[in-house]
Design a protein around this nucleic acid. Structure first.
Lengths: 204, 204
DNA sequence: ACCCTACATGACACTCAGTGTCAGTTTGAA
DNA sequence: TTCAAACTGACACTGAGTGTCATGTAGGGT
């Protein structure tokens, strides 16, 4: 209860903390992109960022988290977007719209995204962690999807909602994957729409 | 080219190797289930299996692979099952039938599967590796699915096939997840059918 | 029966991620 | 000014995974 959301306290300590985090992230990313993820040690990052190794691990529980920091908040953003969709919209439609949010960063910062994607693709431990995080925040979407599936009767087993979420997010992932393979030349939203349509018509 | 598939050579060396692998697996599983995955060290496994630490890592590149060994072959089995489906069957139908294969081990060895599932659910590193392996062999299914989607015209972008594969396997995963949550009491095939039907009707 | 190459093994040293502890410093509120 | 909470660097420790080397053993060819 120490960080009460009702308390507006962006006070010095927290700003300092945010600054250090940002500096570590910047230093780490530079090293990762230059030398590769696995080839970069925590000591090198700490030194470049001007902090001790201890402090590095205090700000980021694992090396992977430096890269995947943004992926955590993504889940909450998608959930909020999903809840903001009109209640009468079907689960499929609402999810489709909400998950489109995931594509925006790729459109906004193509070159950065491409380099990050490449690193992610070629580093097994990063891939694994990323998926794990995504699995975690997929759970955030389940309640809303369930409600849309059975119109508030609370009888839908989670498995159905979970399957639906996986299907839609799988479309987003597939679109991102394909977009990266095209070196960012393809239109990512078209790819996404296409993937959704495929699942749509394939199931008849 | 040393292990030519045309050469039937299950010769002593390979049998020895298989035996050692099996002994390591047995010892490891016992320790894992008794004390937990993270709490079990490679040394303990090696000692219990009667081999050196070096040999342990020669047979299994990581601790995780001891648990997930069977998941690798699963991909090839699903691919074979997929290719064995009648060519005129739709991608969705064929995939649905082929992926049902993944459920059989849960039906055949419920108690063992349940304990393994529990361990898998509670161990982040295992979850991550499992998903990574699955992602890897999902690629095996892409060619066949593509062929079914565009009837041999080779114009379907991979993204569409990949989205479809993800959707179907997501249904299988959701069913397994729910089955484990029910302590094995639910009918896993019904859950699976239900999940498929949800994606089916949700997309209308 | 002997040789000889290829592979399996154990022992050991090494790197690096991640954890935990401790003592010293800074912050922000009383 | 005082004091507790939070942040920090230094250090020691565990354990996974890698690489090397010397020794053994299997099995094909002679």
């Amino acid at each position: 209860m120490k960080a009460n959301p009702a308390t507006p306290r962006p006070s010095l300590r927290e700003r300092q903390r945010a600054t250090v985090r940002a500096e570590i992230t910047a230093a780490a990313m530079e090293l990762f992109l230059a030398n590769g993820f696995d080839e970069t040690t925590a000591d090198q990052i700490a030194e470049k960022a001007g902090v001790s190794r201890s402090s590095f691990f205090r700000h980021f529980p694992t090396k992977e988290d430096v890269v995947l920091g943004s992926f955590v908040t993504a889940g909450e953003r998608v959930r909020d977007a999903l809840q903001a969709r009109p209640p009468q919209e079907s689960a499929w439609e609402a999810l489709g719209h909400a998950a489109a949010l995931l594509l925006s960063s790729f459109v906004d910062h193509p070159e950065r995204s491409l380099r990050a994607s490449a690193m992610l693709t070629h580093t097994p431990s990063l891939r694994a962690r990323r998926i794990e995080k995504q699995l975690l925040w997929q759970e955030l979407l389940i309640p809303d999807v369930r409600a849309r599936l059975d119109h508030g009767h609370d009888t839908t087993p989670d498995a159905r909602a979970r399957a639906l979420v996986t299907a839609v997010l799988g479309c987003a992932d597939a679109a991102i994957h394909e977009w990266a393979r095209s070196d960012g030349n393809a239109d990512i939203h078209s790819l996404y729409a296409n993937a959704l349509a495929t699942v749509h018509t394939a199931t008849r």
